[in-house]
Write a protein that binds this DNA or RNA. Sequence first.
DNA 1: CCTTAGTGTAACTATTGTGGTTACAGTCGT
DNA 2: ACGACTGTAACCACAATAGTTACACTAAGG
Lengths: 129, 129
Amino acid sequence: MQQEDDVLLTSERMAGSVNTNPVVIRRLLGQLKKAGLVEVRPASGGTFLTRQPAAISLLDVYRAVEVVEEGQLFSVHDKPLPACLVGRNIQAALDTTLRRAQTAMEQVLAGVTLQQVTTEILTQENLKN
Amino acid sequence: MQQEDDVLLTSERMAGSVNTNPVVIRRLLGQLKKAGLVEVRPASGGTFLTRQPAAISLLDVYRAVEVVEEGQLFSVHDKPLPACLVGRNIQAALDTTLRRAQTAMEQVLAGVTLQQVTTEILTQENLKN
DNA sequence: CCTTAGTGTAACTATTGTGGTTACAGTCGT
DNA sequence: ACGACTGTAACCACAATAGTTACACTAAGG
């Protein structure tokens, strides 16, 4: 899991690398940590994956950062009129298909690991020669 | 396509029905019209589908209202550092999988028509007895 | 042909979400 | 105990969007 030989990976370094603020990184890191994907050392810094890159899927990080809440990729009008036939039923009517749509998307993410992404990055780099 | 026997469907009626402002409805209607899904009569009002409900899929309306731009369900960091191996390749590396994820989701939407939704709404209503 | 009920759209406000920033307390190797 | 780093609250700036008002444009029907 470690990479002690490498340079220390602090939030400040990451922030500089993607051109943003360290706090933004820490916020994200906090979510990844809560999801059990990374381990963060409070004092002398450093962030590490808790599993092998091959054991982490894109769905894992997608879920971790919760771009959208569980089953809420689509959100339907929240204040339906109970007096309206459509209003009081459209939610339930759409629910299953929207759920299916979301899980279809998520299953694709589930099929790709961080390992694959990194090798893909290297492949892309080599293509440029 | 018509429903002349029914009451006239103006933006004001629709707005009242979903508890919002007529202009909001007209904006949406404008998008649906541009996508060729509905026909709107400017003067004496009224909105009509241009095709049978069975010939309109959820993907059609999803695309029409363009919740997200074509192929942009996921958007990656837009200002990558060209000096960074990851920064300059991650976009391309993720592109195909993210695209696949999005189309997987969209294909589910493509498989459901407005017709099916309306019958589902009626089914839901009947279940309540 | 002119009245009238609707649409199309611009302009503005209010609200919300989010990124960035500062500040500071908490933590732990050394 | 010191120093470097994380965790988090608080705040500002900014972009998106819903809602609203206003008004020009359109056509159906007398």
